[in-house]
Amino acid sequence: MIHMSGISKIYSNGSVALSDVSVGIEKGDFVFVVGPSGAGKSTFIKLIFREELPSSGKLTVNGRSVVDLLPAEVPYLRRGLGIVFQDYRLLPNKTVYENVAFAMEVIEAPRREIQKRVNHVLDLVGLRHKIRTYPTQLSGGEQQRVAIARAIVNSPMVVIADEPTGNLDPDTSWEIMKIFERINKVGTTIVMATHDKPVVDAMKKRVIAIEKGCIVRDQDGGAYGYED
């Protein structure tokens, strides 16, 4: 699904974010990307949806070289990915329903399909009863659930999450993780950068640890491995 070989990323200010990273993530994998702050986790994530381009190396997502994509092709790469951020990134002037539907509207999906899918994914994250609510009236956990619903509404093959529980309390983090697990169960690949030690330790998924731009550990059923 996602294949990196010899990936390096050096930012224009000279800082090395990743150096000679090679890794494969297969369909249906659930991967935690862990490591100290500034180790390169975010860059690793950003390369996948081409927010950043690698300085060297090969990167394919679903068989297509991300590096060789024309700018006009990038939107189509992203349609196959669902992205979840730490800060939710919901639109405050749109309702829960509109926020999720927005992701389908902007790729010009048929209206009937939008209705069906939005209701379905809001069911999945347990927020069907709040479709007319605005994000500011929701708790952090609920907002993140809306963001997850938006990420999966276009049925992506991969969901990429950058610190999705970073702003949430432990109980709420668990609720969010259960949703990700449910999404993963139906075959969606999950790649998640996180600092959430209890979650990583308890879920026993594949763990990729990055330090100083290099993969120092890649372990199935692994633990967080750092004392935060």
């Binding site: 700018p71 939107p75 902007v106 276009n154």
Partner: peptide, 12 residues
């Protein structure tokens, strides 16, 4: 930003 992340084209 969100439009870009969910795959809206530039023209759109």
């Amino acid at each position: 930003g969100i439009m870009k992340y969910v795959g809206a084209t530039n023209a759109f």
